[in-house]
Design a protein around this nucleic acid. Structure first.
Lengths: 256, 256
DNA sequence: CAGTGGTCTAGACCACAAC
DNA sequence: TTGTGGTCTAGACCACTGA
């Protein structure tokens, strides 16, 4: 076994054994160097691994701290779209969160992971609506939300404007653009944070984010049958879990 | 900006621009060293980052390949438990997968991420039932499935035996142990792969895995109200997505 | 079987934030 | 101010595996 793996394992066990309880600092790198009899590079490789695993958070000048296991926010899975006099309403995205900065609307190429959901090719032009949500009390960024709309459908419409008016983009699509009653489908994925996400969410680059994505499908008009919007929300995967009820089926399973 | 970040960004862009299309190899490290005018350590730092992001897969002696964006397996969310004459049935776990090795049953400490779900403390004794599932055609490991049962409930029962008989552990719990009709709840999380998971699933250490977990709650007998089992399945997050339908609520949302 | 990525060393300088 | 982690270099040897 590689030396750095041995050191990483030793540190893992020391943390599990409460030699270094959560919230306390592990010895500084120079000291670990002596303790394990290897070079600083090897120590750093081991510490980097545990950081990627979410066990440690190094801070410049402040030492390296054993991460408190964070409270996971428990989200209920949104399997229903609600509606009131103001507009459509998906409960999950609003739990104690507020927009920390004004939403932005830009035009750009479609990211490769979104393109298949929209039925586009990667880099096809899309309208991008970005929101940054967080805890208004602390100012911490908690969730990133982005909507992608095919440029050929949305570019010159109200959907590409910053303020989409009462009821939001879904009302515009259904009522003003005549795209019919929207169908929705949810998709859950996880992937490493992009550098941009890592910076906004204050994560180490490459740690997992959990993505909850909603596709909106038009049922009438010029866009009938097309996915007209993909909305994807991302959070630090270590701080969130999604729960859903499991019921008993009345009947035997249908064969696929 | 750090040099290794610049190199990583340059490589990212070269990959996006199809200078290095998926499936082809990027230049070897020594060559990148010359191309970017920095030391091999810096090159390796950049390549390691892109590997963590799932863009590259280095192979010894074989060079470093741009990863083909893998087909994502699309899983339907199991919100229903089915039942036939054989036993309970959760559709997702059986899609084209077979056990690649005999299930194992061991006793050990409860992992810290499972303990809260079971209402236990970390390291409390549990019975662990492990299964390794994969594609029978290729022999590739695709999914890891583990059940945890509190030792104080399961240790001396049929639940701790390798063969739990017809209908599996759920029938034993409901019928033989008299724990009543089980309630279930689902939990979805993502986290970095543990070293063991990384080895079995052939992943780089620390890349994200998507976890679909099911809690079983007894409604009668000695275990009434307790979570009597936690079943967690893990897959390479880059190769899976979970889909679920979103319906329109008949009524306005209930206030929380 | 040789070339590739994997590991490791010893040393240096830097930048930032806690003190 | 200064000690900590962050970055980088130049060089060496190893081990696996695919040409």
């Amino acid at each position: 076994m590689a030396r750095w793996r041995e050191v990483a394992q030793a540190l893992r066990e020391a943390i599990a054994a409460d030699t270094y309880p959560p919230g306390t600092k592990i010895p500084k790198e120079e000291e670990l160097e002596r303790m394990y009899g290897c070079s600083r590079t090897t120590i750093r490789r081991a510490v980097a691994q545990l950081t990627a695993e979410g066990l440690l958070t190094p801070v410049r000048r402040g030492g390296t701290t054993v991460r408190e296991q964070p409270e996971r926010a428990v989200l209920a899975l949104d399997t229903q779209a609600h509606r009131d006099e103001i507009g459509y309403y998906f409960s999950q995205t609003v739990q104690n969160l507020r927009a920390l900065r004004p939403p932005t609307v830009t035009h750009g190429p479609c990211p490769p992971d979104i393109a298949p959901l929209l039925g586009l090719r990667p880099a096809d032009p899309v309208v991008v609506r970005d929101r940054v949500l967080g805890d208004p009390a602390t100012g911490d960024v908690v969730q990133l939300a982005t909507s992608y709309l095919p440029a050929d459908l949305a570019a010159s419409t109200v959907l590409a404007e910053a303020d989409t008016g009462p009821g939001g983009i879904y009302d515009r699509m259904e009522t003003d653009l005549g795209w019919g009653r929207l169908d929705w489908e949810g998709v859950i994925t996880a992937r490493p944070a992009t550098p941009e996400e890592a910076e906004l969410l204050r994560l180490a680059a490459g740690v997992p984010v959990l993505c909850v994505t909603r596709m909106s499908i038009a049922t009438a008009g010029a866009a009938e049958g097309r996915v007209v919007e993909v909305n994807t929300t991302r959070r630090d995967a270590s701080r969130v879990e999604i729960r859903y009820p499991i019921t008993r089926a009345a009947t035997a399973p249908t064969e696929v």
